[in-house]
Structures are given as C-alpha cells and as structure tokens.
Design a protein around this nucleic acid. Structure first.
Lengths: 246, 246
DNA sequence: TTTTTTGGTTGACGTGGGTCAACGAGCTTG
DNA sequence: CAAGCTCGTTGACCCACGTCAACCAAAAAA
C-alpha cells in the first residue's frame, strides 16, 4: 500500500513557478522563494472536456481549482428546472470557493470548451497559508474579489436595462481578454446566447436583439460568437444613462 | 507619545468569550481556549446611529466588523445615482469583506437602526489565523457563505418573478430572526419598501402590491413594517412555481 | 454529400412590472 | 396641536421585455 501513494504525485514539478498565469492567479504578488514553495500545493492537473462538469452542486468539497486553460461557467439550478448562470471564468481564475462554507459545492461548474485546471487540495492550502507569508492574504483577496464581482452582477441584474447589461458584459469580457494578452477589441465568446441571457437575467431573444441593435448603431460587429468592439466608449456611455434617458 | 497608545485599548476584556452571539459569529465552532485567545482580536466596539455610515465605498480598508447589536444594509451606487442594495445584515454577521481585495471598501454600509459593531483589525486577524487553529477555517467559511448567499440573490434577481422574490425574502428574514432566538412568524422589518425593492430589483410600488396580495391571499398579515407569517408553507410553494404557472 | 441538430435572428403580440399621480397614515418638529 | 415629513398604499396607464413562432446558418452526424 505504502508504495502506491508516493507514485501518484504529479510528474510536473514546477507547477506555479513556471506558469505564465502567475500574474492573474493565486500566486500573484508572491516572491520567487514563496512561489517555488507553492509548487507543492498544486497536486495534479485535471482535464475537463467541453460540456463536462468539473463539479456539481452537492459534491463534497475537497479542493479548489485554478483554470490553466479554457473556460467555465458556474450555475445554480432551481427544483423547477430554472437555471441561473452565476459566472463565467477564464484562465487564472479560481473555481470552487463556494464549497468551503458547507464543505459541499453549492453550484455546478461546466467547461465551455476543452479545458484544464490545477487541483489545489483545500486542507493543504490551509496548512500552507500558515507557512507562506503572502499566500493567506492573496487567497483572501481572491475570495474578496469574488464577493465584489458578485455585487457588481447584483447591480447589473437589479438596476440595469437589457442593453446596459449587455454593454457591461461585453466591456467586462473585453477587459478580461485584454488582461490575458488577447485583443480587447476582437474576441470569440465561448458561451451561447442562452447562457449570456441566463447570466444577465434576460431571455436569449432579448440578448440577440441587443446584439443586433449594437451592430445597427455601429458600436460592435457581431457574427455568431465572434465580436468586434468598434466603439468601446460608446458602450461605456450606455452605462451612464439616466433611467428616463433614451 | 508612547503612553497614549496602550491607554486606548478597550476596557471590555472578554469580548468574544462571553458574547451570546458566538453561535452566529466568527468564533463559531471554536474551543474555549481558542475563544479566550480570540478576545484580544476584538480591539474596540463602535456605535453607529441609524442612517449613519459604518463605512463608505472608497474608504481605506483596515478592519472588518461583527454586528453586536442592530442591523445594516450594504449598497452600491452608480454614477447616475442608481442604488443597488446588496444585502441586509443582522447581529453576528460580518461586514466589510468586500474591502480586502483592493484594500478599499467597494460598497457603503449604513445602519438601519442604532447599532453596535465589534471592530476586528484585519492585520491582526491575519496574524491570529496563523496561530489559532480554527480561526482561519472559520473566517474562510464566513467569506464562502457570503459568496453562496450572493449566488442566491443572483438567482432571485435573474430568474424569479416579483412575488417569488418577496416570498424568498420573507422566508429568509424569518429564518434569520429565528436563528437569533426571535419568532420566525412575527417580526418587524427594519428597512423601507424602497430598500427592499432595491435589494429585490423591484420598485417600491411593486413590493407594496406584492405585500398586499400576500395579505389578500391569507399568506401573511402586514401593517407597515410589522409582518406576521400566517402560511409559511404557502410562501414556500410560491417559490416552486413553473414559469407558466399562476 | 445529405441529414439532423443546435444555435442564432427576427417578427408579431402579450403582459408583468414600471411610471405617474393621488392620497393617507405615522413620525417628527415647532 | 398643527404643520411638515417620510413612508406606504392604491389606481390608471404604458412600455420593455417575455412569449411564441418561423426561419436560417453552422456544426455535427450519418
């Protein structure tokens, strides 16, 4: 028995220290020495094919996940089948934080494309935060950022009109692609109109119509999932509209 | 100079160890010895009068707060003046977690009644989580719970109809009053219809109409802020309605 | 290749909840 | 005890978005 356990350790030794996502991920802001110690935290990687679940609501919580490649959506389901997409996650972002509170996941995480995640055992993370100076703070920041992000979505869902929501969504995607070294003006969305709609609290037809309207107005150019932002400033201006304005 | 600093320490020595809110608050699940060590974490208490801000968006982040008495709302403001209430907080709940990510608060916290909070210096909290075994885990659970709660609100805002939202809100309040030793059937709301509306993504008139409808249907009895839940099961049933149902 | 499936667009129409407005009930202040 | 507030209720009307349906394009399967 004893022999099998050590053998399962992942062949990839230098997980974080030579990953090009450090700037976006959990290790952000840590020193080189801290970084190398962090490598042992990432136990393994896991590939998740498009449409497959990384975890499901109710699954026992054991680890959080850092997205190494690809992208995901998280959603919550009501008994009657209604779905609410709670977020879209890209490389470097952390999945699974919802599971800590009850030691079981409270939402589903589904890959939007073939993806790969780093598995970070939660008990190991707790231990190491005692040891590595910057890790605890950085982890807290990641969780806090998630809370702030959720508040932004609540703002969007609670107080914005359909076109404002989509404009905010597009600008947010643009900024996140940009942070990952991709163009902020041209990108391919990985999710369907229905998923965008669920996230924004709109029906897919409304999302589609808003896309078309933006195109008519010369703000963007869309073809299916391909988006070209022609007038980002124009989109931003949409967000500052007074309730009564048109 | 040296003399003034020690003098400012709070006279209340046993902050957490003899607080009756331990069950609901940060110290939940910690041993007696851990608990007594926790006392030094709570530096001071702070009173906040009704309508006053505990903190504002943009304020530098230094501490989180545990509500000792009273209640609060948190909200986010858009440049154009639109407000989104992101949550209502009751005794034992933690405020200020949003500030960790950027080291500045990202929302406003306003007392709904004359209230008192325990001030927990964040740097001290970080230190002590290294030392007290259960503190780190418990703190993580508090943050994670906030994330899960926010996802619930997103579900509500994104996929529920007005009456479902209000039913969910009332059941949630009921359950939280109950957890604090108050009646789950009869309570006084601390917030206005407008604040409820902002939280639920509805206008105050719609909230008022939904209250009236619930009363007509014999589900509740309302008079201003006083609420009596007559048929909690009936309210729960409202939440399971299929989109097309009436 | 054709066929099927999935995803996206667009139009016509309906409705839930927003808007506007009047009024009334409690509080507060002088 | 007025006189002013703020907060809540209710009605009439309207519009942004949902619903339903037809159709088309792209991708996947056969």
């Amino acid at each position: 028995m004893r022999a099998t356990v050590p053998i399962t350790v992942n062949g990839l030794k230098a997980a974080c220290s030579q990953c090009n996502l450090v700037e976006l991920c959990l290790p952000f802001g840590m020193s080189d020495t801290e970084l190398s110690r962090l490598d042992e935290l990432v136990g393994a990687r896991r590939k998740v094919k498009r449409q497959q679940n990384l975890y499901r609501a109710g699954d026992p919580f054991e680890a959080i996940f850092a997205i190494r490649a690809g992208s995901f959506k998280t959603d919550v389901l009501l008994e009657d089948g209604r779905e609410q997409v709670t977020g879209f996650q890209m490389t470097g972002e952390i999945l699974g934080l919802d599971g800590i509170s009850t030691e079981a996941h409270s939402c589903n995480a589904v890959a939007l494309e073939d993806s790969e995640v780093c598995v970070i055992a939660y008990d190991k993370l707790e231990q190491m935060s005692h040891q590595i100076e910057g890790l605890q703070l950085q982890f807290h920041k990641v969780m806090s950022r998630e809370i702030v992000r959720d508040h932004g979505v609540m703002m969007l869902l609670g107080s914005m009109r359909a076109e404002e929501r989509l404009a905010a969504f597009l600008l947010n995607m643009s900024q996140r692609f940009n942070a990952r070294g991709f163009s902020s003006q041209e990108f391919n969305l990985r999710m369907t109109r229905e998923e965008i709609g669920s996230y924004l609290g709109l029906k897919l037809e409304t999302v589609s119509r808003a896309f078309s309207r933006f195109q008519e107005d010369g703000l963007i150019s869309v073809q299916q999932k391909h988006v070209l932002l022609l007038d980002a400033a124009g989109l931003k201006k949409l967000l500052q509209h007074q309730p009564g304005m048109r």
